[in-house]
Design a protein around this nucleic acid. Structure first.
Lengths: 259, 259
DNA sequence: ATAATAGTGTCTCTGAGACAGTATGAC
DNA sequence: GTCATACTGTCTCAGAGACACTATTAT
């Protein structure tokens, strides 16, 4: 960007109208000012078949009609109290359930990212266990899971490919200093499942011992008392404690791998 | 939020109009749909007099006329190619210079945060050396620096107090795993200045030795060959290397202090 | 010389990496 | 018993915390 034009920009002289705020608000017409197109999009990740996938929906409307894109849409100002509500509403429409992890990713904006004109989308990043949403998704014909390693082959609407890449980086980074991948697992899970989830996301093996140390130090989990057979010795089943926040560690895993 | 209402929400039946995307775009009228009020705000931090301060401007217009708030405003869709441009344009208006650090913080949205109605603001987080912008700011009567420890006493427009709190948390967190505070220093700086900046931001003393280890390991800086007298032994002056990205460390400082 | 600030050497301590060793359960 | 998977013990190693030590310069 050429920033010199900004340096030369002078402060606009402000026409101060002297009237009460009350009266000002009464007369205020939100449609007076040209406004960008505002949407909300979700990057929902899930694990299955040793793959990390992202949920896509086929666009029913223009622009990019028929192209795959992220599940999202316009804010419903009567239903939604914030863009978080919009994100949740759209996710529930497509998956039938509330994802156990939802955080704001980043807002993408620009003159050229939407053919209709200047646009802005607040992107959210979510995790879910595949089994918790698979039945609902299979009932909808216009939704599919895209394995992230096929991202480059798939043409996507708008800048959704770029948004997914940002979300992937965030997921990988957070996996190095938290146990975020548990939110991709079923309610009750084994340490081996958590290890596999972590390894799929990071794309490389980790030390089980390091995972166990963190698991215990986090204080986030409790033993269900149950165990699960997987062909050999039975593995203990854990669950997340009620109302416990995610624990952030002060060191990263895999700190040899350059950032 | 009551999420049951979302679970009950059914997918709207989509009226698929069969016409070419080209024709669709030609007929597209962005003002057809109700849209939230969209703005961009900046949280600009700076250090002076052993204090971390944030830049505020007195609002010239309704709503909150006369109240202090963050420097920001509407997107100019002809000037700005993205909200980053909007953020920069507003910062240059108020400070006269481009800040050496600018990153997106978060987007705040909601039905009630602006009395005019449903609104959304993309907040940006910036750092600058006080000396680089002080002359310009002093020439503008409607701008001031608010020391962050006085945040609770100051009434601010909209949810700007909350936004500043988020930015502060981000700054403190990043200071623990990077050398972000250098962006609050002049072009040429001493290690002691960097240490003091870090300590002001974190609100506690750090080990100079740890800072030096990180400083050397980061590869971000070069010796200017010059040095600066401060009353006793002269301190070496360093500067940031041209075009070098910020280095992220794999461990945090102060990891005793609970997250 | 003294005081003050700049910078070094080196020990401890935490937690990740590595990997050998033990436990459990299906067959 | 064997074999596969689950789990533990314990060593090494990087880098933060702590703090004593040396270096430089104005007075």
């Amino acid at each position: 960007m050429d920033i010199r034009k900004f340096v030369l920009t002078t402060v606009l002289s402000v026409h101060i109208v002297m009237r009460s705020e009350e009266r000002y608000l009464k007369d205020y017409d939100a449609s007076r000012f040209a406004s960008p197109i505002v949407t909300v999009d979700n990057v929902l990740f899930s694990l299955d078949n040793n793959e990390l996938s992202v949920l896509l929906v086929k666009r029913a409307n223009h622009p990019y009609q028929g192209t795959w894109g992220l599940p999202g849409g316009f804010i419903d100002m009567t239903l939604d109290e914030s863009t978080r509500d919009t994100a949740l509403r759209k996710l529930v429409e497509k998956t039938g359930v509330i994802p156990p992890w939802l955080e704001q990713l980043e807002t993408f904006s620009g003159k050229y990212r939407d053919p209709r004109g200047w646009s802005l989308t607040t992107a959210w990043f979510a995790l879910i266990a595949r089994t918790d949403c698979q039945p609902h998704i299979e009932s909808v014909s216009d939704a599919k899971w895209l394995p992230t390693h096929q991202l480059t082959q798939q043409t996507l609407a708008f800048d959704h490919g770029e948004i997914i890449t940002h979300a992937l980086n965030r997921l990988r980074q957070k996996t190095r200093y938290s146990l975020l991948p548990v939110y991709c697992l079923a309610e009750e899970f084994t340490l081996t499942q958590l290890q596999e989830a972590t390894e799929i996301i990071l794309g490389q093996a980790i030390q089980r011992k390091s995972l166990i140390r963190r698991f215990e130090a986090s204080g986030m989990f409790e033993d269900t008392g149950k165990s699960k057979a997987t062909g050999a010795r039975k593995a203990r089943l854990y669950r997340r404690k009620e109302g416990v926040d995610i624990h952030l560690f002060s060191r990263n895993l895999l700190n040899d791998t350059a950032e």
